[in-house]
Design a protein around this nucleic acid. Structure first.
Lengths: 212, 212
DNA sequence: ATTATCTATAGATCTATAGATAATGC
DNA sequence: ATTATCTATAGATCTATAGATAATGC
């Protein structure tokens, strides 16, 4: 028989359908019957492959949390560049990764940030990823500050500035759109402007205040 | 009989309980039975006063959307101040209003930003509030830029910077906490630092780049 | 033999309402 | 008379599973 790359056609179809259902409706709003229908399988198949709704959800959530965490890491990971350049690329890469998964932030806020029972998994993941990143970044920031090239800042605060600025527009876009004036409808152009703004504001944040 | 200020003890108790239930669990996760139990009334009373779960929810959502919109307006509304001072106060006021309703952003993101069927109400509200505010702000920014006091910026971009920076930390706080190091557990101090950082980054954003 | 699939249904909730009864305000 | 409250239950979902049947791989 003709075997596609992914083992288990149906298992894969279920996961795809589940991803869409959970991302758009959240765990509570998602229906296993809808997932089965969208995947083109009988409802009983979901339980055959995954036993429970919860277990399917965990599969999806896990992958999304990993993606979210790694978006930060891969974005800022490029070594061997001057700090200001590394930050600029980091902001742009991070922004682009979010843009490529524009419904991800909302999903994570919905399903993780608002569920104490799911904090722990996310916290550990974040700690493992961010602590080394922060330590390295702080070191480089301090050096640049000592050389008088940059304002002295706390690495966590700087990274939180960046993530706030990069993520929030994607959360709020639907209600932002009517304010865009001539940009309304042209999401790509708005996002390009936003990306540039985020680079610029961070650049100026690090700029040394001129002495008077 | 002793009449409390709010007409209908029970109606009010139901609304209070509903607010908590909907804010913590969202519409889909909320249970009318839980609301009734928390309000100390029989389940049938909910339907007597509000007919449906949807209608109770609308009451809560409406109030929260209003609060969210007005937090921006009242924060930046103080007139008769120099622009830089007005912005500083605006950022601080807005931050404080969010801090006083720390679960509000998550609720709005959950229930409005992710539900196309609820965009429209929010959009109109935002438009009515933000358009005059943006127009006035842009005017003042342009004047200051013309006088050479400030960098020239787009008012919407600036306001989006501010709102992103002010709101996001409240969304993400639960998973941010383990990264705070010596600040962990001392939420108030972290928030105070964050508030100051947001004022500072916007101040620098508006600072004229020194000519070289 | 094992794995995959289907039909049918159990069992658990959850929202909503019907209908009776008690309290309240003219 | 009207308003408030309760008990009991209808009706609609939804998740999960039992048990039969078909397909697959040694």
């Amino acid at each position: 028989m003709f075997m596609p790359e992914h083992a288990h056609n149906k298992e894969h179809a279920i996961l795809d359908a589940a991803e869409h259902e959970f991302l758009t409706k959240g765990f509570d709003g998602a229906r296993t019957t809808s997932i089965a229908r969208a995947a083109g399988v009988t409802h009983a198949m979901l339980h055959y492959y995954f036993r429970t709704k919860e277990k399917i959800f965990e599969r999806i959530l896990d992958e999304k949390m990993r993606l979210m965490g790694e978006s930060v890491l891969t974005a800022f990971g490029t070594p061997g560049l001057p700090l200001s350049e590394r930050l600029r690329q980091g902001i742009e890469n991070h922004f682009d990764l979010i843009a490529a998964n524009a419904d991800l932030p909302r999903f994570v806020v919905n399903e993780v940030f608002s569920r104490p029972e799911r904090y722990e998994a996310m916290r550990q993941r974040i700690r493992r990823i961010m602590e080394p990143l922060l330590a390295g970044l702080q070191h480089d920031l301090d050096e640049a500050a000592a050389r008088g090239e940059m304002d002295s800042v706390d690495a966590l605060m700087l990274l939180l500035d960046i993530i706030s600025l990069n993520v929030f527009p994607f959360l709020a876009y639907p209600v932002l759109e009517p304010l865009l004036g001539d940009l309304a409808g042209d999401k790509a152009r708005f996002l390009a402007l936003r990306r540039a703004e985020n680079v610029e504001i961070i650049r100026k944040r690090l700029q040394k205040t001129p002495q008077r």
